[in-house]
Every structure is written in structure tokens, then in C-alpha cells.
Amino acid sequence: MFLELFFQYLVAGLTYGTIYAVVGIGFNIIYNTTGIINFAQGEFVMLGGMTAVSLHAFLPLPLAIAGAVLVTMAVGGLIEMLFIRWLVKPSVLRMIIITIGVSILIREGALHLWGEGIRSLPYFTGNEVSAIEIGGVRVSPQVLWALGVAAIVVLLLNVFFHYTMLGREMRACASNRDAAALCGIPTRNMVTLSFVVSAGIGALAGCVVSPITQTQYGIGAGLAIKGFTVAILGGLGNSMAAVGAGFILGILESFSIWVMPTAYKDAISITILLAMLFARPSGLFGNSEAARLKEF
């Protein structure tokens, strides 16, 4: 019985960890390409889920998800073009204020559009009670979907950044923006692209965990902080580590229920964040060398 509970918590931790990891990766992509920490990252997850729910009203699920991802990517691009593009070497403070402002804007917009109600996408396969037996543990198929999608996203990103010309151009831009510009690479477009990609993966994550965690207009803020924590935990800029860090956070949060009231669950991430920023800002897996290279 204890073991079963343990694995339930573990699975829950992994599930939430997936979202955190993806949000963290989104942070990294934008940070690497632009040096900006985009606090509106969490809103992309929310937008993905909410838009998919709305589209699902008249579209089959796969199309709804695809549509939601595309719409959110467009929003991401718009944000960049409207708010970020004209920033010239912004100070950290300015950038934080602007992105927080954007996230508030989106959140309010979502409130007006969808109201306060909690929504969720239907389970991709099965329903809330269906379960798959894995090694004696009952796991919801949606969890497997979440983990699978996350794995594919990470894999695709890897392929993109290391094996396609466009991905290399973005890495060049992240590595040394001036040098990239001197190669003729349109760095401003790379920046927009980074927002678009981050928005896309955020939206996809939002869709795939929506059945489990539900989606509501306000989930973005919390996710942003947790995603940021994950990014810092793994070492800002290091996406592989973000995955690991995401799982760590998810699991820690999940198991915290054992020892403290549920209400404090969110405090875990903030505590970890503060601790990391004070003690080891380069992250668990990071080192200053890697941070300098700014590799995805």
C-alpha cells in the first residue's frame, strides 16, 4: 500500500515535472537567444490549454491542439514584435517589469475571454479513471502521453538546434549576437523565432497535461515561477539540465504532501529558487563555463 502511494506521488511528480521542465526549457530558449528572462512564459501554457478547449468545441481533438499551438505561437511572436523588439540592451529590471506586465495583460485577457471557470481537455485516450498497469503500478495513460510528448519535444529541439541550419543560426545568435549579425544572420528574426518556439512548446505542454491538472486563466503565474526555478536549478541556459531539474522539483513538490500541508506545496519551489539564487546561482548541473557558452 505504501509502495503504491509512493509510486502515485512519483508519477504525479513526474507529470507536473514535465510541465515545469518544458516551461523551464522555454525560459532557456528565450534567455539564450536574447538574454531576456520572459516571465510571461507560464501564460503560454495556459493559452495553449484554454485555446485548445475552445477549439475542441468544433474541431476534433488533434486539430484543436494543433490550432491551439499555432495560435499561441502567433501570440508569442506578437509579444516579441510589440514589446521586446524595440528594447535596446534592456536592463534586467526593465525586462522583468515588461515581461511581467505582458503576463498580466495576457492573464486579464484570458479572464475576459474565458471567465474564471476551470476547463480541461478530455483525456487523449481513455478517461479519468482508465489506468495502465506498469510493474504493479496503475498509471493514467495521460501521464504517458505527457512524458511521451515531453520526450519528443526535447528530442525534436535537440535535432532542431544541432542538425538544422536554422537551429544552428539560433545557437550562433545565442552564442554571440554581434558575431551572428556579422555573418548576415537576421538576429532580430531569430529573437522572434525564439519566442515563437517557446510559446509553441509551452502550449503543447499545456494541452497535454490539461486533462490531469486542469486549465484556468490564472495558472500562468505560478507556472512561470516554477519554470523559472527549474531553469535556475538546472543552470540558466542549459535545457538538458532543465529537464532533470523539472523532474526534481515536481517530485519534491509531490512528496512534500507527505510532510507538510498541501497549501505549502507552492512554497517549495520558491524556497528552492531563493536557495539556489543565494547559494549556487549557476545551478546544480551548471557551471559558469557552460553558462557562458549558452548552449541549449
Partner: peptide, 8 residues
């Protein structure tokens, strides 16, 4: 200062 893409 050269400014090559060090990780590539």
C-alpha cells in the same frame, strides 16, 4: 577579439 562561436 575573434568572437568565434565557441561551442560549435
Amino acid at each position: 577579439g575573434r568572437q568565434v562561436f565557441a561551442a560549435m
